[in-house]
Design a protein around this nucleic acid. Structure first.
Lengths: 194, 194
DNA sequence: GGTGTTGGTCAACGGGTGTTGGACAACGGG
DNA sequence: CCCGTTGTCCAACACCCGTTGACCAACACC
């Protein structure tokens, strides 16, 4: 038992590798297939393990999704750079995030069908984006609305580019997207209420 | 047979009512549940008919979806009103459309999971929105890109408001949305290339 | 070196899905 | 009034899903 506690302290369980493999496979499937079509069987096949292992580790499909999809946007401190560049910086940050972290696409795709995922998106908006908005928008009480407006533009672009794959949107470079969307986000955050 | 032809001409088949009922139920289910969770059995139950009727009329679930979801945005002629009001008018038009026609939500929800629905959205963008952009944007070759940018903002708002139901977005009035998004769409369509 | 704990596999269950074909009812022209 | 066409329902098929529990293998400790 003392051994066991020691192992737990250093966090080196033998099964952690499998656990991680399952989570990686789950993230990928959820991102490309959505909730219903990402079957436990398919995820298990990708991870080269038995479907029942998924249940052992995460109790059910809901639990697997909750464990696989945790999102930290790593938003920068908006007061760290010039006020009139905030829009462009944020758009650039989102683009980079979206392309290196498939959790974003998974959450977007699943959120349209699965209430739990949608709730998770509410939470990200409330706890990660809105606080940034509060620090820079003219009237702090408007922060939730302004954050939601930014979210609508960023999510809409992600939908067009990474989910629906509109050719005209896919072909844009990062720079072009920042040039077009930057001013929009900037206005949603800093312009006076229309 | 002559009778039959006559009936076809006046289009009054006995089964047309059932057909329409099925389509209405299908639209509603697809809009609220997405493709996979909108089961043929559930749709049939809503329409108070047997599941096999759906197959007889539409051969497939795919066929049912294709028949149920046909979209005409009824976009106005953009040259009909002042050039600097186009953005606001289009946003208002989309809002009205979206709330009176559940096909829009159905297409959006299903499009994130179903390739055929996504392709249908490409088509709407190409054949309905892009032509409008071509008539007013500075460089006609940029019409597809500018249309896609408008689509990203409009779809993002629809996603936030009608699918994910972000409270801050749901609580906005039509006027507020037009005030915020109008200038964005206006810029995407008419501003010079950044 | 036995022995309990942990990691993993196998086969199955109950339920829901899209889809099919055959039987029955209602209408409409001769 | 009959009969073919048209509309509808019923029962079933084959498949796939999430989930379960019994069984096996390998390791760690006495």
């Amino acid at each position: 038992m003392s051994e066991k506690h020691e192992r737990e302290r250093q966090g080196a369980r033998r099964s952690d590798a499998t656990r991680a493999t399952i989570l990686a496979a789950a993230r990928e499937r959820f991102a490309t297939d959505g909730y219903e079509r990402a079957t436990i069987r398919a995820i298990a096949r990708d991870a080269r393990i038995d479907p029942s292992m998924v249940m052992r580790y995460f109790t059910n499909k809901e639990g697997l999704f909750a464990a696989a999809v945790t999102l930290d946007l790593q938003l920068p401190d908006p007061t760290a750079f010039p006020r009139d560049e905030i829009g462009r910086r944020l758009v650039g940050h989102f683009l980079r995030m979206w392309e290196e972290n498939e959790v974003l696409t998974a959450l977007l795709r699943v959120g349209t069908t699965n209430p739990a995922a949608a709730e998770r998106m509410h939470q990200v908006l409330r706890e990660q984006l809105a606080p940034v908005a509060r620090r820079i928008c003219p009237v702090p009480e408007e922060a939730p609305v302004r954050a939601a407006l930014c979210a609508s533009q960023v999510l809409g672009l992600a939908l067009s580019r990474y989910v629906l794959r509109f050719p005209s949107t896919v072909n844009l470079s990062h720079e072009q997207i920042v040039d077009w969307l930057g001013p929009t986000v900037q206005r949603y955050l800093t312009a006076k209420t229309p």
